[in-house]
């Protein structure tokens, strides 16, 4: 087998893993869009906010300490304790639920029946607000996140592939864990929406707000629930990406990676987010490997969008999106 083919196989494998990471971010967008028709621009910032909150709780950091110190001349920064990762994650989920309630109570409920573009603009405002809030609460410095996820080369796979091909494949342990987490998350989300009362109510709201209201489903409750689940997905994405690069402002930019995934997979399909992520991940990595060197490299960012646009030419609703036909 030629070296080029073996390397292409390694690149494909890593592309699949990268695709899963993109899909993790895209899932949050899909959940909110599916239930409320809102394209949540703030999803990336929610991942940042969740990860910063998690690290802050784990390190026993005093929230708003810079503000408190500036106002009162104090020098407090830490409570002096460290919280175990699992408890910190549970507490952070609580914070994300609180955030979901606040978003619903202070923003979204006032915008019921508004045009989708108005709701979209509201989420842009929310994104900027959350960016500032994250900085104000936890500071701008880069924080190391360690919740016990393994990192580094998977030695087993390295050895196995070396025995077969004479070249050991590199796969990051973190990517493997992320794949398992994403699979569990998707299974849980599908089970939740198919087999629970709340999940069915969520789907009913997604299908028709008015009809759902007429059978006694509380829109407020469902939307708080959906934003909470999206917050949880943001936390998972924040943990995985934050473990990779440290928790910092740039986490909010991971949303850029989710957009081509959504365009390709469709905005309303959970499996679409996964399949879209995998196609984008493999496509961009292979293109960069095969064509990149001929055109100067750094093709990944733009190629993902080109790939998504090519798919849109043939399926405007995305691979798994709902085809909307409006008759006049």
């Amino acid at each position: 087998m030629s070296d080029q083919l073996i390397y292409a196989m390694e690149v494909t494998l890593n592309g699949l893993m990268a695709g899963v990471l993109y899909a993790l971010v895209a899932l949050g967008f899909v959940l909110i869009y599916k239930a409320s028709g809102i394209f949540n621009y703030a999803q990336g910032v929610m991942a940042l906010f969740a990860a910063m909150t998690l690290v802050g709780i784990m390190n026993g950091q005093v929230p708003f300490s810079h503000l408190i110190n500036a106002m009162f001349g104090t020098h407090i920064h830490h409570f002096g304790w460290h919280v175990p990762a699992l408890i910190a994650i549970i507490l952070t989920i609580g914070v994300m639920i609180l955030l979901a309630w606040a978003v619903q109570y202070f923003v979204m409920r006032h915008l019921v029946n508004q045009e989708p573009i108005i709701l979209f603009m509201a989420t842009i405002g929310l994104a900027y607000f959350l960016e500032g809030l994250s900085d104000l609460m936890w500071g701008s410095e880069i924080k190391k996140l360690d919740v016990g996820l393994p990192q580094g080369i998977n030695l087993w796979l390295d050895e196995v592939t070396f025995n077969i091909f004479g070249y050991g494949f590199f796969v990051d342990n973190l990517d493997i864990v992320a794949t398992v987490i994403a699979a569990l998350l998707v299974a849980a989300l599908v089970a939740f929406s198919q087999y629970t009362k709340q999940g069915r109510a969520m789907r009913a709201v997604a299908d028709d707000h008015q009809a759902a209201l007429s059978v006694g489903i509380s829109l407020n409750y469902i939307w708080v629930m959906v934003w909470s689940v999206a917050g949880f997905v943001a936390l998972v994405a924040g943990i995985v990406w934050g473990t990779k690069s440290g928790v910092q402002f740039s986490l909010s930019l991971i949303a850029l990676k989710a957009l081509p995934v959504l365009m390709l997979g469709g905005f309303t399909s959970i499996p679409g987010a996964i399949v879209g992520g995998l196609i984008i991940g493999v496509g961009e990595k292979l293109f960069d490997f095969l064509i990149g060197p001929m055109i100067g490299g750094a093709t990944e960012n733009w190629f993902a969008y080109v790939l998504a646009l090519v798919f849109l030419v043939f399926r405007p609703q995305g691979l798994f999106g709902e085809k909307i036909i409006e008759r006049v």
């Binding site: 590199f170 740039s250 930019l253 490997f289 750094a298």
Partner: peptide
């Protein structure tokens, strides 16, 4: 050899696989 990384640089798997090769 020149290995560009696009802004912001959160994903660099391709570049480091190339370095490994």
């Amino acid at each position: 050899s020149l290995l560009p990384v696009d802004h912001p640089g959160q994903e660099q798997k391709s570049q480091w696989l190339q370095i490994r090769r």
